[in-house]
Each structure stands twice: as structure tokens, then as C-alpha cells.
Write a protein that binds this DNA or RNA. Structure first.
Lengths: 194, 194
DNA sequence: ACGTTGCCGAACACTGTGTTCGATAATGGG
DNA sequence: CCCATTATCGAACACAGTGTTCGGCAACGT
């Protein structure tokens, strides 16, 4: 039983991923060509296509790496059935830990592909603990859970991307706190009354 | 002095725009080729490039059309220096009026290009009446205006795109109300107390 | 009616994509 | 340590789409 897989495979995939990320930062995802990746990673053309259908598949594999790592981190901090307040903080912390990758995937130069997948991911995560129909927000109106999830996920993703593109001008805790303050002003006012 | 421009020019541009929008709905922006547009619009290749640098330029010209119309509508309803609460409602109303175009530009098939520009537009609009540094939200924490604008703009855009992609399951007023309820739960709770 | 201007259409060079295949060399199990 | 396996290389190829050029024709507005 092999320990994980052929060493050459790991090497190739890692080289390709690193090459792509570096190139995105240099010239932007759209302008990166498969040939660029090949040259930078020093990998043969046929080899590339043996691993990935196209440029986008490679990009998504990078994203998947991050995603797994994030899930692992979430499961670690909160063993089972977590209260959902943890998620935003975990996201910001994770992004801060992996600044270079996030810069490439969510930065100005990154394509919008990853942002889209992140959006889906966040919407699912935030909408997880919500009944299909229920009043939302600390206060009044009857807002369907799906809509609320959409609202909060978009807002969170907006802050995250803004943060990345401004090159992390604040700490992850500050960002998480700010998000909470904007998302649940009522709660915050109560909880932090001097 | 010509009334606007050569009739042929208007015809060509209109045909191209309509062809693009139709094709986006059919096969998605990415898959649309310049040749597709040419065939559908029944316009010569060289003519296309006499008007637009590439596919994206045509797309942006469509977006610009919408944008101007929206601004005009905003200026109409609120003559000068409007309170910013009107903007979300105006956006939802505008989208509802131009459902077909919004479906193409912000729908699942639309590229992410327009969404990006819309995001910029909304962030600017919502951040307009805010001092560079100030406490935000009805309650506590000291949130910079730029961050708050980012938050609200992303949330609004998220709801808008969700709405379009669900094929407008609610009225524009309901959407605007829901947005307000989620964005300013404190205000809502006060304003709508029975 | 006329000068101007936009349109056509076919040809062209060019860039990038994705596939194929035989030869070579690294790998991990026995 | 050896060997069967398997990943990689590299070069060639067909293909799709892009953006440009230019002469002739037709529609336009005045």
C-alpha cells in the first residue's frame, strides 16, 4: 500500500499549483496561459493534461485544498454541531494564516471563479442551522432562512474579499468583530454595554 | 447636426446588444463566441470590431446602458442629495422593470464581469453619504465607513443576484423591505412596532 | 443629387488549446 | 538490489477563436 501516491505525482501537482498561484499574482488569472504554467512549473504539456482538464480544473484543485483545510480546522475547534457564530471568525483566521494563497485566489488578480465557489460554501455553512422557514434577525420581520443566509454570506464574503484586496490592514479578530457588529447590532449593543 | 447618430450605427449596436443578451441566456457568457454574435445579429466581422474592441466591451456597453437608466431613475425620484435609504428600493425596482436584461447580466449564465462592476457601483452609492471615519450601525462598535459600505453593498448585491437567479419569486418592495429588515434590525423593530 | 460614412465579406496571421505517441527515467514493492 | 510499473517528456498535430486589413458597395443625412 503506497503511503499516499507516487512521489512524482505529488511533485508535479505541487509545482503546477505553485506556478499557477505565482502567475496569478504576476499577471492575473485571465492572462495566465497553460504554457506559462508549464514553463514556470517546468512540466511537460502532456503531463499537465494528464492531471487536469484545463486551467480552471487546476485552479479548483487549489481551492479544494484550502477548503479541506478550512473544514478540518472548523471540525478541530468545534467537535460536533457547532453554534454558527464561530464560522466568520474561523474564516478570517484561516484567510490570515494563508495570506499568499488567498491573495491569489480572492485578490484583484484572481479570477471570479473562486469567489463564486466561496459564496456557495459560505451560504451553505451559514444557512446550515436554520429552519427552512423562520423569522430571522434579532428583531422583527419574517425573513425566510434562505434569504437571510444569502444576505449574511454575501456580506461576509464581501468583507473577506475587501480585506484581502486591501492587503490585510486589520487583524482577523478585528474583522470578525466588525462583521458581527454589522450583522447583529442589537446583540452587540447588549453584549458590550460598558 | 444629426439627431443622435447615423441610423445604421444605432441599428448595428442594438442588434449586437440584443444578440449578445440572447446568446448569454442560451449558452452562458463564457461560451458565447464573437462569431455567434455576428451570425445572430447578422453583422459583418469587421463591423463588430469597428464598434467594440472585444466581446467584453460589448457587454460593458450593455451594462452602461442599464447604469445610465438607473441613475436617471434615481435622479428622477429624488431630485437632489437624497437620503440613502432610497437606493436599495430603487435598485430592486429597476431590476424588476428590466428583468430580461438583468437575467442575462446577473443570472447564472451571465459572466461575473457585470457583478463586479455592480459591486463597485453599489459600494460607491451606499458609501456616499458617510464620513470617512465614523461609528456605524444603529448601535455600538466603531466601524469605518468604508467597511460598512462594503458590508451593505455586498449584502444588497447578494440579495439582488439571488433574486434574479431565483427568477424573481417576490416583488421588488418585498425584497427592499427584507433587505432593510436584515440590514437595520434595530430601526425596523422600532419603526414597525405594532 | 451628392459627398460622406458605415457596412460587407473574404482572406490572413496569430495565439492558445487539447490530444497523440514512442522513448526515457523515476518509483516502490518484492 | 532488481524489475515491472507508471509518470513524465517533447514534439508534432488539428483545431477553434481572435483581431486586422482592404476594396467595393449601399445607405445615410443634408
Amino acid at each position: 500500500m503506497p503511503q499516499a501516491e507516487d512521489r512524482r505525482v505529488r511533485r508535479t501537482r505541487r509545482n503546477l499549483a505553485e506556478a499557477l498561484i505565482g502567475l496569478i499574482l504576476q499577471k492575473g488569472y485571465e492572462r495566465v496561459t497553460v504554457q506559462d504554467i508549464l514553463d514556470r512549473a517546468d512540466v511537460g504539456r502532456s503531463t499537465f493534461y494528464a492531471h487536469f482538464r484545463d486551467k480552471e480544473a487546476l485552479l479548483l484543485s487549489c481551492f479544494d485544498g484550502l477548503r479541506e483545510d478550512l473544514n478540518q480546522q472548523l471540525d478541530a475547534t468545534v467537535p460536533t454541531a457547532a453554534p454558527r457564530g464561530q464560522i466568520p471568525a474561523a474564516i478570517f483566521a484561516h484567510a490570515y494564516q494563508h495570506r499568499p494563497v488567498y491573495r491569489a485566489l480572492c485578490g484583484r488578480q484572481g479570477g471570479h471563479i473562486v469567489s463564486g465557489h466561496l459564496h456557495t460554501l459560505l451560504t451553505r455553512s451559514l444557512g446550515l442551522g436554520l429552519a427552512p422557514e423562520s423569522r430571522l434577525g434579532p428583531a422583527s420581520a419574517q425573513v425566510p432562512a434562505a434569504v437571510a443566509a444569502e444576505f449574511y454570506a454575501s456580506a461576509l464574503l464581501g468583507l473577506l474579499i475587501w480585506w484581502v484586496r486591501q492587503d490585510f490592514p486589520h487583524g482577523p479578530d478585528w474583522m470578525a468583530g466588525t462583521y458581527e457588529a454589522l450583522a447583529h447590532p442589537g446583540l452587540r449593543a447588549t453584549a458590550e454595554m460598558p
